[in-house]
Design a protein around this nucleic acid. Structure first.
Lengths: 240, 240
DNA sequence: TGTAGGATTATGTAGTACAAATGACATCCA
DNA sequence: TGGATGTCATTTGTACTACATAATCCTACA
């Protein structure tokens, strides 16, 4: 279920390896990487492959290389935080639940607004897609099926806003959050408990009632957030 | 003022050139690029430089290359829409004001929520930064100075949320929007008209009143949005 | 002491050669 | 005829070498 981030290319592997090191903080911002020739040798790849990987990382804002000076890790300020890879690396490296909170916060901001926009701008086709997702949720027989349908529902709502930037943001955040949720199973009983919430959202969008949709969606994600939070608490060892 | 996107590297230029072509729609999704060797020759660069550029583009989700099949432009769905470059290319290519609307919508969603979060979580240092920005706005003598301070104000608010994802999103959106605003001058008279709005935001954050802050910020950005909209209307030739 | 300019050293670019993957096509066998 | 199988051709992937270019550092000279 969790996509294993399959990489067929060599430089892709190098990107993953270096990316993890940098985002994980093992190579601190401001610090210089070893010379290309050296690093290539150490990673057992050609300088060509290494350089292609470096270009990718510098496209993500993680590093910056100049002649003579060498290649250095940029300040986190310049990192492309909303890049899917960067986010994934952070998820993998930050054991603190602090980051999950931030993701959840983003979601809680985006989704209600999106629901409102969807209620205003949806067209029949998109409404149908939302309805279909809802039906699938209602018909889900296990948690697995339900999560898939749930995700489809939210994505359909986002699509109905006609704003692809929003869709993009959501999918990035959601993917990152999802990887957390899947780590451990929620209570299997009552996995459909939020179905009524979703129904309200659907109805409001159907009836073109932006404010109602916003509020309903707000309740839905707040619920899910408290779920995540409870989750986080029980998962992490109490550190204080 | 508008950063000229200075690129010192050769492959950087190639990235820009190809990126513009793809995002601008001159090479449609699904379409194949010419073979590397051919394309390199046509662009008068070595295959090495071209490939490094392609790696960057594929990191942004614009293209995908496989052996034998060649390199093809991916569907817009996979584009890294929130990448600063991609956004910039879109701004440069989409003459429609439709896109500006979408950017403004994002802003209108993020900022009020951010103001609320800032009111809840700001620490003294960040408050000071917001105040400093406000003072600079109040003291601005021309539109130029004012925009700089304005931007600093909003950025300071975002920082006070302690959520770097939000900061990142804002800065991307804002940069893209900014490039539009700078295209043509707003009315020079009363360029400080929104100062009172900002004051309200500042006060609410200082007093830790999330809801007040949200509402004040909401008014501020709504105002700016209607400004943009008026702007857009007068700029674009009426097409219908 | 200050500055000009060269030595040094890192990345940047070019070009060649070969490896690997895979789509297309021909071939073979039932 | 139809389907499985194998070979070939083409395109990207990787490696390696050579040299260009920029920026730092440091020496030498005024």
């Amino acid at each position: 279920m969790v996509k294993p981030v399959v990489v067929r290319n060599l430089h892709g592997q190098v990107v993953q390896e270096l990316g993890r090191l940098i985002v994980g903080g093992e190579i601190a911002p401001g610090e210089n990487l070893p010379r290309e020739e050296l690093l290539a040798e150490r990673m057992k790849v050609s300088r060509t492959a290494l350089r292609e990987a470096m270009k990718v990382l510098s496209a993500k804002g993680l590093i910056e290389s100049r002649q003579k000076t060498g290649t250095r890790v940029r300040d986190t300020l310049h990192w492309n935080q909303l890049d899917a890879d960067v986010l994934a690396w952070r998820c993998a490296s930050m054991p603190t639940d602090d980051f999950v909170e931030k993701l959840a916060e983003m979601r809680e901001i985006i989704e209600p607004a999106a629901a409102a926009a969807a209620a205003r701008r949806r067209d029949p086709e998109q409404l149908a897609r939302i309805e279909a997702a809802y039906e699938a949720m209602a018909a889900a027989k296990d948690r697995e099926e339900w999560s898939v349908a749930d995700l489809a529902f939210h994505e359909a709502v986002l699509h109905a806003t006609h704003n692809e930037l929003m869709v993009s943001l959501f999918s990035v955040v959601e993917t990152a959050l999802g990887s957390y949720l899947e780590l451990s199973a929620r209570k299997a009983i009552d996995f459909k408990y939020s179905l009524p919430h979703h129904k309200k959202v659907l109805d409001a969008i159907r009836r073109r009632q932006p404010e109602v949709a916003r509020e309903a969606m707000q309740k839905t994600v707040a619920d899910s957030r408290s779920n995540i939070r409870r989750h986080a608490k029980s998962r992490s060892a109490p550190k204080a």
